[in-house]
Amino acid sequence: MAMLHTVNKSPFERNTLDSCMRHALPGSAILLIEDGVVAATKGTAVEGKVKEKMGDVSFFVLGPDLAARGLGEDKLIDGISVVDYNGFVELTTKYDNVQSWL
């Protein structure tokens, strides 16, 4: 089964993203939402870890949450796809199961 993982906490505040990446199997996807979106931007201390995980897991980020925090799409790590709310819903149907990392 392929899982869609959502992460809604900043990696600078909690270990949520770390824990998620530790448990995300190859072929699964990670969608960054709410404060979690900051992990999708370039030049952060976690960029290396995210890029490494992108080798076998797809990364998505929720556009409205990026915009709300003043983070333009030009700041994103290459290869992370932006989705809107409809895209979020499509992802939940495309994958077999959803796990929310809080």
Binding site: M1, H23, Q99
Partner: peptide, 18 residues
């Protein structure tokens, strides 16, 4: 281990997170 737990999560039908 984390690896085993990842498999357990993968094989679950419903995951409730707290």
């Amino acid at each position: 281990t984390a690896k085993e737990l990842a498999e357990i999560m993968d094989q679950s039908d419903v995951i409730l997170s707290f």
